[in-house]
Write a protein that binds this DNA or RNA. Structure first.
Lengths: 219, 219
DNA sequence: AATTATTTTTAGATTTACCTAAAAATAATT
DNA sequence: AATTATTTTTAGGTAAATCTAAAAATAATT
């Protein structure tokens, strides 16, 4: 069975929203996909008929195991292509998302496997997210939210919580990227901002919002 | 301005069929795209409105310079991806076409340029077809003996190896002349005869002697 | 030149994915 | 519990790309 790009985008969106417990609501999906609730309802019926998810009127939606399998295949392609773009084509890690969004819908199974081999079976993409293997398994993240990093514990930036250009622009300005080593020197309870120190730079403060968008791996 | 995958496929098909002079007919296009004449008429109106081609009712179609530019961009992407698949991912040259058919519609301009650089600015794809550069220019194809033309490679008769009346009589009988477009569907090793297909005629066989007397230019 | 055959276009339907507006169900508040 | 607010679904419609069947234009043949 094969699926349209639109259908694949719905499956991927549900996959990302259903992390944790509980069902994904129609409105959440509509927001995520920049479409309207009525359109979502239509599509959910279609995807239910294709057995990719379980859905009952007014009760939200969850992927079936078939749906999860498809979602993981798409995520796998997305992250492999991102790795390719950064590692082989010298893209910046902050400019690959949209291109990978297109490439992830290329259907050839053989292409994905050969690309994976060509890249040397990478485990993580340029944003620090794990790449599912051909069976859908992926490495567990040892990374922790920067906000939860203890004081004076050296860590390395391993992931970001969003792909928004606004975030990436800010990170670029502050010269923070994947692999950047830092430690927290102070935490301020007034606004939950934190003061971090990078290598031999002077310490500087970052906002709570930014800290929450960064994931680090203790080193 | 951006174009749908379907529109791009129409432009590409017209480009391939209009080599040589004369307009491309509705039926030819319908056959090439595995669709019906009525659908083609609809699309031609749309593409005319977008100024990609010139089209008058009942008179066939030709690409405008805008249309040619688009066609060359698509062909460029197709052939660069084929080169990538064969050279980097170890695909066989005979199994890349369908995958490239999907990849050619990835829109990122930057991706194409970086891919081209990564591949070392190749001039020909794995089938021997020239790859247009970023300005749409491509290396000129030399004519080749028909016997050496790869299977399923569309080519146009560009010369004959002799002017004997016997040869010309035979060519006339088979409706083959300079400019005739054909492709080889099969090669038989027993007698080195080859089966060729011309336009919308049924395929038929020609002898080794005749094939050796014909020179073709891939189109 | 008239007739027949072929090609091409029009007309009207279908499918996918989307929309708006109104109705129905669920959740929140008084 | 009743009312109000929010969420979700239904109903009906639009645009893209396709189709079949019939009409119109062009080409081929007698």
């Amino acid at each position: 069975m094969s699926f349209s790009i639109t259908e694949e985008n719905y499956i991927k969106a549900i996959f990302h929203l259903q992390q944790g417990e509980g069902n994904v609501s129609t409105n959440e999906l509509a927001a995520e996909l920049h479409t309207k609730a009525a359109s979502v309802t239509d599509m959910l019926k279609k995807l239910k008929a294709k057995k990719l998810l379980s859905y009952e009127k007014y009760k939200g939606v969850r992927l079936s195991s078939e749906g999860k399998k498809l979602a993981l295949a798409i995520v796998r392609k997305h992250r492999l292509w991102e790795y390719f773009l950064v590692d082989k084509l010298q893209f910046g890690w902050d400019e690959v998302h949209d291109v990978a969004e297109e490439l992830e819908h290329i259907s050839s199974k053989k292409l994905v496997e050969k690309l994976d081999a060509f890249l040397g079976y990478p485990k993580f993409d340029p944003h620090g997210d794990p790449i599912p293997d051909s069976h859908g398994k992926m490495a567990v993240q040892v990374q922790v939210n920067l906000i939860d990093l203890p004081l004076n514990r050296m860590a390395e930036v391993s992931g970001v919580g969003s792909q928004s250009t606004e975030l990436l622009e800010l990170l670029k300005h502050k010269h923070i990227g994947i692999g950047t080593r830092l430690e927290i020197k102070r935490k301020f309870s007034f606004d939950h901002s934190i003061e971090i120190k990078i290598r031999n730079q002077n310490p500087f403060a970052i906002s709570q919002q930014l800290a929450q968008a960064l994931f680090v791996k203790p080193v």
